[in-house]
Each structure stands twice: as C-alpha cells, then as structure tokens.
Amino acid sequence: MKIHLIYRRIPNRILERDDDVVADLGEVVIAKSRFEGMLVPLKVNGVEVIRNGYTMLYFAFIGENYDVLKVYDENGEFKGLYVDVLAYTKREGNTIEMLDLFLDIFVFPDGRAFLLDEDELEMALNYGVIDRDTFDFAYSVAREILERLKRGEFPPEVVWKY
C-alpha cells in the first residue's frame, strides 16, 4: 500500500511523492522513504546525520504540529530522529498533507537534541514570508518538543515500536 505525501514549505515549495506504508494506525501513518535530491549532506554539531541514499521511517501524526523521522544510513545504522515543526498534518483518504514551519530538531541516539534552521525562520519573518504569530507558533511548538524530550515524554511510544 502507498500513501501520497504532500509536503508544503512556505512560500511555495511543494514536495509530492508516494511512499510505502509500513503501518496505518488511523491517526498515525508510518511510511518508508529514501532521502534524495539533497544538495549537501546535513551535519549536526559537526556530524553528518543525513545524506542522499539514507532511509527514513517517518511517522505522520494526524492533527499534530510535528512529524518524526527515524533516520538510517546505508548499512541500516540508526543515525537519530529528525523532527519537523509543522503548522498542520492533515489526512484525506490515502493523502497526507503537511505544512513545514522551517524549524527542525535532530535527536542523536544518545539523546542530545539540537534545534535547527532558526536562521531560515528568522529570514522568513524578516522578508514578510510569515507573520509574527506564525514565527511565535513555530518556536512554541519547538520549545514544547524540546521540553518533552527532556522529560522523556517525546517521541510518542509508537516511534520505538517500528
């Protein structure tokens, strides 16, 4: 079974693809995909964590303001969790739509977490691509996730079951 993903990025970038469904739990869809089309690998704290060819198991939480990607290298080694801060996650049948709010969090297997792309969010505000409410909302979601991580309440349990 496939799920159609529509991943929107302000102001007008849209990524669409069909991914293999691993599990459809209704309010959580788990799908498998591959990183492709990256111009450069992603490094966090000096460590390469994502590059083309790596695989992801992603968890789309319907109605939530985040998704979670479990990242694996070509050898199947777990590299960490990548969390997108989202305005929304909606589902209609076999289509999931998300709107990205720039901020991301990477969590290493040892639990160290890093907030990413603050510069992109700041630029979006400065250039009028987003308003102050959207800016503040993105930070509030990111702060909540980071706090939940510290308390051991994030990610949701389902992430460790797959």
Score class of each variant (00 low, 15 high):
residue 26 G to S: 09
residue 126 N to T: 01
residue 128 G to R: 07
residue 162 Y to G: 00
residue 127 Y to D: 08
residue 39 L to H: 15
residue 21 V to G: 07
residue 25 L to K: 15
residue 96 I to Q: 04
residue 60 A to G: 08
residue 120 E to W: 02
residue 92 E to N: 13
residue 148 R to S: 08
residue 85 V to A: 06
residue 77 E to F: 14
residue 9 R to M: 07
residue 131 D to K: 06
residue 89 T to E: 04
residue 42 L to F: 10
residue 154 F to Q: 01
residue 20 D to Y: 15
residue 68 V to L: 07
residue 48 E to T: 14
residue 56 M to G: 13
residue 86 L to C: 02
residue 38 M to D: 08
residue 101 L to K: 09
residue 1 M to Y: 11
residue 126 N to S: 09
residue 28 V to M: 08
residue 150 K to P: 09
residue 72 Y to N: 10
residue 82 Y to V: 05
residue 61 F to P: 00
residue 143 R to P: 04
residue 82 Y to G: 07
residue 8 R to N: 12
residue 28 V to A: 08
residue 72 Y to S: 12
residue 6 I to E: 13
residue 81 L to M: 15
residue 148 R to Q: 11
residue 93 G to M: 11
residue 116 L to D: 04
residue 112 R to V: 08
residue 95 T to R: 14
residue 12 N to P: 00
residue 34 R to C: 13
residue 46 G to P: 01
residue 122 E to G: 05
residue 121 L to A: 06
residue 37 G to N: 10
residue 108 F to T: 02
residue 131 D to C: 02
residue 1 M to S: 14
residue 148 R to Y: 10
residue 20 D to F: 14
residue 20 D to N: 15
residue 26 G to D: 06
residue 97 E to F: 07
residue 93 G to N: 13
residue 47 V to Y: 05
residue 159 V to D: 08
residue 56 M to K: 15
residue 63 G to C: 08
residue 112 R to W: 08
residue 155 P to T: 01
residue 52 N to S: 09
residue 95 T to F: 03
residue 33 S to W: 15
residue 156 P to Q: 09
residue 98 M to K: 12
residue 1 M to H: 12
residue 83 V to S: 07
residue 49 V to P: 00
residue 73 D to Y: 12
residue 31 A to V: 11
residue 16 E to L: 10
residue 73 D to F: 12
residue 124 A to W: 00
residue 15 L to V: 12
residue 36 E to A: 12
residue 56 M to Y: 15
residue 24 D to K: 06
residue 88 Y to N: 10
residue 136 D to W: 04
residue 44 V to F: 07
residue 86 L to T: 01
residue 32 K to Q: 15
residue 59 F to P: 00
residue 21 V to Y: 07
residue 141 V to T: 00
residue 36 E to H: 10
residue 78 F to G: 12
residue 123 M to C: 00
residue 2 K to M: 11
residue 8 R to I: 00
residue 14 I to D: 08
residue 50 I to A: 06
residue 29 V to T: 09
residue 153 E to V: 00
residue 154 F to E: 03
residue 147 E to I: 03
residue 34 R to I: 14
residue 84 D to N: 15
residue 91 R to E: 05
residue 4 H to R: 12
residue 129 V to D: 05
residue 118 E to T: 02
residue 76 G to A: 12
residue 43 K to N: 14
residue 121 L to E: 01
residue 159 V to C: 13
residue 138 A to W: 01
residue 19 D to G: 08
residue 108 F to A: 04
residue 1 M to D: 09
